[in-house]
Design a protein around this nucleic acid. Structure first.
Length: 196
DNA sequence: CTGGGGATCGAG
DNA sequence: TCGATCCCCAGG
């Protein structure tokens, strides 16, 4: 990690969700909680394409209390509770009229964790939130504002296009035609990738 | 009001 | 393959 790591501009998020999902690989999640700082580099993401995507929480234009953060503009956090025990972190993309988002599925520990050498510590969206202390309390935060306790940073880390793999998303077998769309992206061969 | 299901995880 | 664990929401 370079010395300088800055929040991504709002423009980064206000565009194609698939491109956003690809370009978030290598970026850094920062969470300040209880005076401690947790940092991790994103290694796996999934794009969720809004009203036309059966796997997406806003499919068909659903606009319930749970998903209201997805109707914010790009660059805000959408966090939901699942299976009675886990939270999942998403980055909202595009604008208020297109409720799309990128699910952060895995990351590599950088700072603040009990075992920095364990590449499996953040290998999965539920584990990532559990270990980084991310809960519903962070839902709706602006990930571009230096005032937020939860941020996504760019330290200049670059990936080659050939290092990025695209595959169908995990856990969306119910999504009919959308279940095989190649919207899961991850860094080829990385030790922190969630299991398939 | 109700009940079925879920963008998960880890044990067996 | 299965259980833990509980919020969410569509349907009645």
């Amino acid at each position: 990690m370079k010395l300088t790591a800055l929040p991504l501009n709002p423009e980064f998020y206000e565009r194609s969700t698939e491109k956003g999902a690809r370009d978030l690989l290598g970026k850094i999640i920062f969470h300040k909680y209880n005076g401690k700082k947790y940092l991790a580099r994103i290694t796996e993401t999934e794009a969720y394409l809004g009203t036309q995507d059966r796997a997406c929480h806003t499919f068909g234009g659903r606009k319930t209390e749970r998903v209201k953060s997805m109707y914010l503009k790009g660059g805000y956090a959408y966090i939901y509770f699942i299976y009675g025990m886990y939270f999942c972190l998403n980055v909202v993309t595009r604008d208020e009229t297109c409720p799309e988002a990128v699910l952060i599925r895995a990351a590599e520990p950088i700072q603040g964790f009990k075992d920095l050498e364990d590449p499996r510590l953040l290998a999965g969206p539920g584990k990532l939130c559990r270990e980084m202390k991310i809960t519903k309390a962070e839902d709706g935060l602006n990930l571009s504002s230096k005032k937020s306790s939860l941020l996504i940073l760019d330290d200049g880390y670059k990936l080659k296009k050939s290092e990025i793999i695209a595959k169908p998303r995990v856990g969306v077998d119910y999504a009919e035609e959308a279940k095989n769309w190649p919207l899961r992206f991850y860094i080829s061969g990385h030790k922190s990738i969630s299991r398939t």
